[in-house]
Simulated assay, not measured.
Amino acid sequence: MSNCQGCRRTYWSYECGICKDCFVRWGKTVKVLQREIKELKDKIAFLRIPSPLDHHDQPSYTDVVLLTASDDGTPESSVPVPAHKAVLVNRSPMLKAKLENEMEEKQTASIEISDVSHDVLCEFINYLYTAEICLDEKLACELLELAENYEVKHLKAYCEEFLVSKLNWENSITRYVFAHRHNAKRLLLAAVSLITNNMSSFIERDEYMKLVKKEPGLLVEIYEAYLYKQISAVPRKSP
């Protein structure tokens, strides 16, 4: 049994999440919305560009490769990741600048992406084509940093939203530091809120002493946020 989204009455399972009476009353509107949703899905499927990494046995007509440092630190020995210039320049302002302005990239049709693993680079390129990805916390952090560096705002926001959903007391301090470094404002606010709600426990954490020694400026910002929260909680007296 469920509650109708229209009249909130309890009803036995029925199409579209509404009871039979509401379906009859709104049936035309529901059908129109269903048709519009289907049309949008069909349009997305039509416009979606397959990633060249999805079909290794078929020609993908790629015209550029991306390289990252391999285990020995040289891009020459890393496995190339194929892509299309047209996709890269429309997804990333930084990749567009590299392809348009740097002579080496023009001549060799290759782009070096440093400080990232081959697997993460593949996930990054796949996302530029499909806007789809299956995240875990480690991958989300790595992709957020890569998305920030290459100005892929949609991917950065997606990773940040995922990390906010995984935020807890145990990882709040490390996530706060990470968010501060990479200008992830939503994650920063969520982390500092969690920390300032648990200040008595905060000063007992090992990470607290690390902040004292290595990043006292961040510690000051946490205390400022805590002080502001305390002041805001005090009722104002009438004049």
Score class of each variant (00 low, 15 high):
residue 139 L to Q: 02
residue 140 A to F: 06
residue 140 A to R: 07
residue 140 A to M: 06
residue 140 A to E: 10
residue 141 C to E: 10
residue 141 C to I: 04
residue 142 E to Y: 08
residue 142 E to S: 13
residue 143 L to H: 05
residue 143 L to V: 03
residue 143 L to S: 01
residue 144 L to R: 00
residue 144 L to D: 00
residue 144 L to Y: 08
residue 144 L to C: 07
residue 145 E to L: 04
residue 146 L to S: 04
residue 147 A to K: 00
residue 147 A to C: 01
residue 147 A to M: 02
residue 148 E to M: 03
residue 149 N to C: 10
residue 149 N to I: 02
residue 149 N to F: 08
residue 150 Y to D: 00
residue 151 E to Q: 09
residue 151 E to Y: 04
residue 152 V to C: 13
residue 152 V to Y: 00
residue 152 V to T: 08
residue 153 K to G: 02
residue 153 K to H: 07
residue 153 K to M: 10
residue 154 H to W: 09
residue 154 H to C: 06
residue 154 H to M: 15
residue 155 L to Y: 04
residue 155 L to V: 09
residue 155 L to M: 06
residue 155 L to R: 05
residue 155 L to E: 09
residue 156 K to S: 07
residue 156 K to G: 00
residue 157 A to C: 02
residue 157 A to S: 08
residue 158 Y to G: 07
residue 158 Y to W: 01
residue 160 E to N: 13
residue 160 E to T: 07
residue 161 E to M: 11
residue 162 F to G: 04
residue 162 F to N: 09
residue 163 L to C: 04
residue 164 V to M: 11
residue 164 V to F: 14
residue 164 V to Y: 15
residue 164 V to S: 08
residue 165 S to N: 11
residue 166 K to S: 10
residue 166 K to R: 15
residue 166 K to T: 13
residue 167 L to V: 13
residue 168 N to Y: 14
residue 169 W to T: 01
residue 170 E to I: 14
residue 170 E to S: 14
residue 171 N to P: 14
residue 171 N to V: 11
residue 172 S to L: 10
residue 172 S to T: 13
residue 172 S to W: 15
residue 173 I to A: 06
residue 173 I to Q: 01
residue 173 I to P: 05
residue 174 T to N: 13
residue 175 R to Q: 08
residue 175 R to V: 02
residue 176 Y to Q: 03
residue 176 Y to C: 09
residue 176 Y to A: 04
residue 176 Y to I: 09
residue 177 V to H: 03
residue 177 V to D: 01
residue 177 V to E: 05
residue 177 V to F: 08
residue 178 F to N: 05
residue 178 F to Q: 01
residue 178 F to L: 15
residue 178 F to R: 03
residue 179 A to S: 14
residue 179 A to G: 09
residue 179 A to F: 14
residue 179 A to R: 05
residue 180 H to G: 06
residue 180 H to N: 09
residue 181 R to I: 11
residue 181 R to Q: 13
residue 181 R to C: 12
residue 181 R to S: 12
residue 182 H to P: 08
residue 182 H to K: 12
residue 183 N to Q: 14
residue 183 N to P: 07
residue 183 N to F: 15
residue 184 A to N: 05
residue 184 A to P: 07
residue 185 K to L: 12
residue 185 K to D: 10
residue 186 R to M: 10
residue 186 R to G: 00
residue 186 R to D: 05
residue 186 R to N: 02
residue 187 L to K: 12
residue 187 L to A: 02
residue 188 L to S: 08
residue 188 L to N: 13
residue 188 L to M: 15
residue 189 L to A: 03
residue 189 L to E: 00
residue 189 L to S: 06
residue 191 A to N: 06
residue 191 A to E: 06
residue 191 A to Q: 03
residue 191 A to K: 07
residue 192 V to W: 05
residue 194 L to F: 06
residue 194 L to P: 01
residue 194 L to G: 07
residue 194 L to E: 11
residue 195 I to E: 00
residue 195 I to F: 12
residue 196 T to W: 11
residue 197 N to G: 13
residue 197 N to H: 12
residue 197 N to S: 06
residue 197 N to F: 11
residue 197 N to W: 15
residue 197 N to R: 15
residue 198 N to H: 15
residue 199 M to C: 04
residue 199 M to E: 00
residue 199 M to P: 14
residue 200 S to V: 03
residue 200 S to N: 08
residue 200 S to D: 09
residue 201 S to Y: 04
residue 201 S to H: 09
residue 201 S to K: 02
residue 201 S to C: 10
